[in-house]
Design a protein around this nucleic acid. Sequence first.
DNA 1: TAAATAGTGTCTGTGAGACACTATTGG
DNA 2: CCAATAGTGTCTCACAGACACTATTTA
Lengths: 286, 286
Amino acid sequence: MTQKKDKNGLTEKEFLKEYKAGDYDRPSVTADILVLGASADLRTLKILLVKRDEHPYLDRWALPGGFVHGDETAFQAAQRKLSNETGLEGVYLDQIYTFTRPDRDPRTRVMTIAYLALVSDTSDDMLRGVTCAGLGEATGGVRDAAWFDLVIDQGSISFTNAERNVSIEYSIENKRFKNGRIFYENWVSSLKSKEELAFDHIEIIIESFIKLKAEFEHTDLAFNMMGDTFTLPDLQALYELVLGKKLYKTNFRAMVAPKVDATGAKMKSISSNKMSAEYRYKEAAH
Amino acid sequence: MTQKKDKNGLTEKEFLKEYKAGDYDRPSVTADILVLGASADLRTLKILLVKRDEHPYLDRWALPGGFVHGDETAFQAAQRKLSNETGLEGVYLDQIYTFTRPDRDPRTRVMTIAYLALVSDTSDDMLRGVTCAGLGEATGGVRDAAWFDLVIDQGSISFTNAERNVSIEYSIENKRFKNGRIFYENWVSSLKSKEELAFDHIEIIIESFIKLKAEFEHTDLAFNMMGDTFTLPDLQALYELVLGKKLYKTNFRAMVAPKVDATGAKMKSISSNKMSAEYRYKEAAH
DNA sequence: TAAATAGTGTCTGTGAGACACTATTGG
DNA sequence: CCAATAGTGTCTCACAGACACTATTTA
């Protein structure tokens, strides 16, 4: 493309032939995924955690994820992991933030690019593939996978799985710090339970949930967490679950009206067990 | 911390002692910074670009940035680069997005974590240190640094520096793609001028500017791009410059009223050369 | 048939958008 | 002094928040 020579008298072609990447500044990079959904009855948020069967953090619960391979983007790595570990394809997946603290992994320097995935089904069936696949191939130290109840309220965040008798809890505190001239808010967590999450995954979860909440009201993200058809009472239940507050029926319905189409049919609301009009997400412009 | 043994019978301590990071999946990681400010007369946006004096993209203009060292976070790397190349400290700096396309750097795999910095002074004085420092130490191939006029309108984005007779222009097009159930918009650029930016830096710039615009109206970001004291006409000029549209004086003043304090003094508006009340950013809660 | 939930009508406050007007200021 | 800009008053409209009411459904 260019025949320009650099200060050593090399063309770009010659330079690239000679180039050897330095070693000291090359970290490992993983993609970790926060897979989030609502329980079948739309009463609790569910998060997918996997149990590590390797050091470090052996036997700790962690976000699913793995190394970004040499021939793929971080996004593709996240998609691959998601597909391997849950069988899910075509779900909503978005990059959230990159975590780079030098000591966040005791093995070596590992940066992680955090992704948020939203799913509409959090049944255990879905995970049947996980344990097998995870144990079968070298998927980066996974022994078990399970949906945990995620409860976030003012002051604490908790992860519980009754079947496995696991309960992990952190208290969270809002700290202000200055960036340039303006103040920013940041959530700082501290462990409350005996069990803990692996690595700095609690930070990833908090950061992702903040972003989800901020975007939830003004975008159509919600429809990634609902089935193909749904009732408005159920859709409202999901919004209330994520936003953590009650909404007024009238205002809610006015807000979603341009985003949905009535199918004409009726179906039972899962959250209330009553008949209600059936709707479908309207993909058209609005 | 734990004496648990893994499937090879190793404790965590023993495991870590033996651990050797694989090589194939370890990319280089850089932090690239979009340094943005307004011209002295608040009529044009200014972006800091540096000229590469190394392959690849020898002699091309690029975003300032460099490798993340082994003992620092990406944020610290961005701060260090910013300080080295502009002498700026304590400016607004925020992580935007991480770019991971495997072929985005022809040397080897290089991921970049993009940062946005906002500054209140875009005079050339500020850069006097850059060229010296850049040439003196091995700052990753910088020959020259300069402020470019950044003009973004519907359909194109351009970078011009009259003194150096450089003009770089891309056309940008809005493409829709599906993520889960919902559609997303994405700007795709294609080169229009003879000169081009290095690497995929045009993507970083577009992505960062989109985020800036989205946040500008609802946060106090603007005050990072103004001096200590300012007039409301000037502040409004800045908002109009970034948002790319005219604002109504009354509504604008109502919007910023809770964010500013009148100092009681008067000063000349830079954008209009008329006397106007002097204000200061109010850091208190609102 | 009674309790609970689906679904609708409407009042209020807030904030952006839009003009019109008076007061200052620089040339 | 006059053109341009600083600065203020106020009308409109969209939309979120908040209640109240009727219709339907389940138990």
